[in-house]
Amino acid sequence: MVKKITFYTRNQCPLCVEGRAMLDMVAEDLPIRIEEIDIEQDDEAHEKYMIMIPVVEYNGQVIQYGNLDYATLYEALDDSV
């Protein structure tokens, strides 16, 4: 089953670029689909995540934000763990 991940980001955010690369690495090993949302284009997301980005959400829950790492993301998204 493919899991839909929401990735909150913004332009000109080096940490977001690194976070997306980390998510892409996880996507190579697990069936996930990444929906990217620019918080600058979404007032509600901007207010909610302005100082936390990048933010990864799954099933409405934040699974990681800020410095994203492979192990934490993989563990949160892998059904076999």
Score class of each variant (00 low, 15 high):
M1P: 08
M1C: 14
M1D: 15
M1S: 11
M1N: 15
K3D: 04
K3M: 08
K3E: 07
K4V: 15
T6C: 14
F7D: 01
Y8D: 00
Y8K: 02
T9R: 05
R10A: 09
R10Q: 15
N11S: 15
N11C: 11
Q12R: 09
Q12P: 01
P14D: 06
P14S: 15
P14V: 03
L15K: 15
L15I: 10
L15Q: 09
L15M: 13
C16E: 00
E18K: 15
E18Q: 11
E18I: 14
G19C: 11
G19K: 04
G19V: 04
G19W: 09
R20P: 00
R20I: 10
A21S: 13
M22I: 13
M22V: 10
M22G: 04
M22F: 10
M22C: 15
L23W: 02
L23M: 11
L23V: 12
L23D: 01
L23F: 08
D24F: 08
D24H: 04
M25F: 05
M25R: 05
V26T: 02
V26I: 04
V26Y: 02
A27V: 12
E28H: 14
E28A: 14
E28M: 11
D29K: 15
D29T: 15
L30Q: 10
L30V: 05
L30N: 13
P31R: 12
P31L: 10
P31T: 08
I32P: 00
R33Y: 12
R33G: 05
R33P: 00
E36T: 10
E36W: 05
E36M: 14
E36K: 11
E36I: 12
I37K: 13
I37Q: 07
D38A: 08
D38L: 05
D38V: 00
E40F: 10
Q41W: 14
D42A: 04
D42K: 04
D43N: 11
E44H: 09
E44Y: 12
A45N: 03
A45I: 08
A45K: 02
H46S: 06
H46T: 03
E47K: 10
E47I: 07
K48P: 01
K48E: 07
K48W: 12
Y49H: 10
M50A: 05
M50P: 00
I51R: 05
I51E: 04
M52G: 01
M52P: 00
I53C: 03
I53F: 07
I53Q: 02
I53E: 01
P54K: 02
V55I: 07
V55S: 03
V56H: 08
V56Q: 04
N59L: 10
G60D: 04
G60A: 13
Q61I: 05
Q61Y: 11
Q61S: 14
Q61M: 07
V62Q: 02
V62D: 00
V62R: 00
I63N: 04
Q64R: 13
Q64Y: 12
Q64D: 03
Y65N: 06
Y65H: 08
N67F: 08
N67D: 09
N67L: 10
L68R: 00
L68W: 01
D69T: 05
D69A: 12
D69E: 06
Y70K: 05
Y70G: 03
Y70L: 05
Y70W: 07
A71R: 15
A71Y: 05
A71Q: 06
T72E: 13
T72Q: 12
E75T: 07
A76E: 03
L77M: 03
L77W: 04
D78H: 13
D78G: 08
S80T: 14
V81F: 11
V81G: 06
V81Q: 09
V81P: 01
